[in-house]
Write a protein that binds this DNA or RNA. Structure first.
Length: 741
DNA sequence: GTTCTAGAAC
DNA sequence: GTTCTAGAAC
């Protein structure tokens, strides 16, 4: 978010005419493999400003040189009127100091921090060939990790006039864009942008595991210092939320019931007139006052400049509305409790008819904040929604919105659409539109009231389906048995009127009026799982049933010993998300889960290494697993196990069928999904080859004999391995982290 | 995922 | 004869 301010539009010509255009020294800060050279190349390829790149790896006639040579070269370029990229790691303050000193009245010094996790940098460094610094292959990991230990994030107080932190590719692209479009007489805004406060987890994690050091207070300290300096626009927005000071304060002991936070329906992307919408909101709120009991409604919008909020505030004043039961609030609807201190049991979502994530705005924000759990829970309730209707979805307890914000339900509402770019546009017919918007708020408030009522009566039953119907109809609680009736009810005035366009937007999907219907799995992508394939799913959903093999349980994962270990150490980290059967189901929303699973796996690796330092491990997923429920294998590379019996066993762990966890994470981060090839199963019938030396073996017993030659000694030396196996001297760092180096 | 076993490979 | 694989059943 903060990166928006770093966009190209941010560059502006200097306003004073006599000022000579300033030169810029951009100090790149990042480990090998973080993308410094690529950054420079991309900017220089398209910039109208003269740039020079000073790279320590090649400064000495194409070979690596010294820092002093770099300083000299930067000064030379500046005197020629060129702005300069300082392309070296510059990881700590001392390394940067001499370049920062070059700043002055005519020269601005910027920092661009390419702050990627160590594993990403290692992976990139290992893969690349022909790198200028000759830092490819096995050396890379050691160097990256050493650098990471020295890492000291830059602060403005060092003398920078501008620092940009990049944490992912989109941050990098935004920064490249900003510098590419920086013309010879333009300047970029000063300040510190894009710094995350709690991003050190993975890096510290990996350093900790590699070097077995505690996260040093120095590193944490420097993070925090800089965080305080980086008071950015986002924080200004939060300051403005002090406008919420009219928030009714409830005295201790006062019985406040349930709170519904809702966005204005249809006024954003659906372009419904704000004035008309405000009238309808106020009208419907007033109507529901008497039905609310001690529960309350809160209209939420992101910005203190919100037109709809101010319209509603004005209109409410002249109505008979209790300000304790209805008020407006400025804030992010997905962070009302954590960032705004407003506890709301229920939030409404301005949904799309497909009830799917995406589309930007509130819908996108809520689905993304609630995690995949909301998507699955929604699918179980309804497949689509008609304009004017609402459907309540109980949030599973593993949803971050439930855990962090204490939201128990999300009510999806679909309002009328006036935007020709969106399906089912009403072409400015505000007769129809207003009617549908009234129905939408009625449905929403009815849903909320019935949730509140149900929770009061029976907290256990809140997972019952709650679906609000037409404006005048009574609240209905439906289940699948009532499907036929529901379909009948659906043919209400509203649905008849919108039927034509409804059919249009459904296209070939052949979706009948499924409102209120129990969902069937979409498409035929989902794989059939036999009864025997359910074991991991059962453990993930109900870990307490499995006391024997259980190693660890958290909200996100369960760790168990593999029942049939294929090596001396072989454990599984199970995801606890419902509906996440395998890599094929994984998407961008699971990125944090994948990282958590990896971190948990690494933690156990560290423990195992405490018992036997000679072990090596791989962490990864089977491309097409036999058992349902996403599970990360953490497996030692000895493969010394009586359970390892056949070719399939072997090939699932030693061919491309085994997808390294860090590769999967990187793939999901960049492409949004993990690629799963249809013909991956062919890999399982491939010839048997040693995972170390790649030698072929005629059958499993012979292969195992070959493999077990390593196990004769507790710590086979590299020499011994090489002799037995003709081991190449490049460890497979990207997956089997060499924890001993 | 494992177990079982027919029959191929040696 | 024994060893080993691969496919079916669960």
């Amino acid at each position: 978010m903060e990166m928006e301010i770093d966009g190209a539009s941010d560059s502006k010509p200097l306003e004073t005419g006599d000022d000579k255009p300033k030169l810029v020294v951009v100090i790149l800060i990042g480990a090998p493999g973080s993308g410094k050279s690529t950054f420079c190349e991309q900017v220089m390829a398209s910039s109208s400003r003269p740039w020079s790149r000073v790279c320590q790896d090649i400064i000495n006639n194409g070979k690596a040189g010294t820092k002093q040579q770099c300083v000299k070269s930067v000064m030379g370029s500046l005197s020629e009127g060129k702005s300069v990229f300082v392309d070296r790691c510059n990881m700590d303050r001392e390394q940067r100091a001499e370049f920062v000193k070059l700043g002055g009245p005519q020269v601005e010094v910027h920092g661009v921090v390419l702050d990627f996790p160590a594993n990403v940098c290692i992976s990139r460094s290992v893969k690349r060939t022909g790198h200028e610094g000759n830092l490819q292959g096995g050396k890379a990991a050691a160097v990256v990790n050493r650098m990471m230990q020295k890492k000291e994030l830059p602060k403005l107080s060092e003398g920078f006039s501008r620092i940009v932190f990049c944490h992912d590719d989109s941050d990098v692209q935004a920064a490249i864009k900003a510098y590419s479009s920086l013309g010879p007489s333009d300047t970029l805004r000063m300040g510190c942008f894009g710094q995350k406060h709690a991003d050190a987890k993975i890096q510290l994690g990996i350093m900790k595991f590699l070097k077995k050091v505690e996260p040093s207070s120095e590193i944490l300290g420097s993070n925090m210092d800089t965080a305080q300096e980086s008071v950015c626009l986002a924080n200004d927005e939060y300051k403005e939320t002090n406008l919420n000071k009219e928030l009714p304060q409830c005295s201790v002991g006062e019985d406040v019931g349930f709170t519904l936070a809702f966005p204005s329906i249809s006024t954003a992307d659906f372009q419904f007139d704000n004035e008309k919408a405000a009238d309808i909101i106020v009208e419907k709120v007033e109507e529901f006052m008497s039905k609310l009991g001690n529960n309350r409604l809160v209209l939420v919008d992101l910005s203190y400049r919100s037109k709809i909020l101010s319209l509603v505030r004005t209109k409410v004043a002249s109505r008979n509305i209790d300000s304790k039961k209805f008020f407006t609030f400025v804030g992010d609807i997905t962070k009302l409790y954590s960032a705004g201190g407003l506890y709301c049991n229920v939030i409404a979502n301005a949904a799309n008819w497909r009830l799917k994530p995406g589309g930007g705005g509130v819908n996108s924000a809520i689905f993304s904040a609630a995690g995949p759990a909301l998507e699955y829970a929604t699918k179980e309730r309804a497949k689509s929604l008609q304009p004017g209707r609402a459907v309540a979805v109980p949030l599973p307890s593993d949803s971050p919105l439930f855990k962090r914000e204490r939201v128990s339900h999300v009510i999806h509402v679909l309002g009328p659409n006036m935007n020709p770019q969106r399906p089912n546009c009403l072409n400015n017919d505000y007769g129809k539109g207003s009617k549908i918007l009234r129905e939408a708020y009625t449905a929403l408030f009815e849903c909320f009231v019935s949730i509140a009522r149900n929770q009061e009566q029976s907290p256990v039953k809140i997972s019952e389906a709650l679906i609000a119907g037409s404006s005048t109809g009574p609240r209905r609680i439906l289940n699948t048995d009532q499907k036929t009736k529901t379909d009948g009810d659906c043919a209400s005035e509203t649905s008849k009127k919108s039927k034509g366009s409804e059919d249009e937007m459904k296209g070939k999907d052949n979706v009948s009026c499924s409102y209120g219907q129990k969902v069937k799995q979409e498409g035929s992508i989902s794989k059939h799982w036999g009864a025997w394939a359910q074991a991991l799913y059962n453990i993930a959903m109900n870990p307490q049933s499995q006391k024997d093999q259980l190693l660890e349980v958290s909200d996100d994962v369960v760790v168990v010993n593999d029942l049939y270990p294929k090596a001396q150490r072989h454990i599984l980290v199970l995801a606890r998300y419902r509906g996440l059967d395998s890599l094929a189901n994984v998407n961008q929303e699971h990125l944090n889960l994948l990282k958590t699973m990896h971190d948990v796996g690494l933690k156990w690796v560290q423990k195992f290494l405490g018992d036997d330092r000679s072990m090596t491990f791989r962490l990864g997923y089977h491309s097409d697993p036999s058992m349902r429920q996403l599970h990360l294998h953490v497996i030692s590379q000895d493969f010394n196990s009586s359970h390892l019996k056949n070719k399939k066993h072997w090939n699932t762990f030693t061919t491309a069928f085994f997808r390294d966890s860090i590769d999967v994470i990187e793939e999901v981060r960049t492409k949004g999904k993990a690629t799963v090839n249809d013909d991956d199963s062919k890999l399982l019938s491939m010839e048997l080859r040693c995972h170390r030396c790649r030698s072929a073996h005629p059958n499993m017993p012979r292969l195992k004999r070959h493999i077990n030659d390593f196990q004769g000694e507790s710590q086979p030396t590299k020499e011994k391995q090489r002799r037995l196996c003709d081991l190449p001297d490049v460890p497979r760092l990207k997956s089997i982290f060499d924890y001993n180096s």
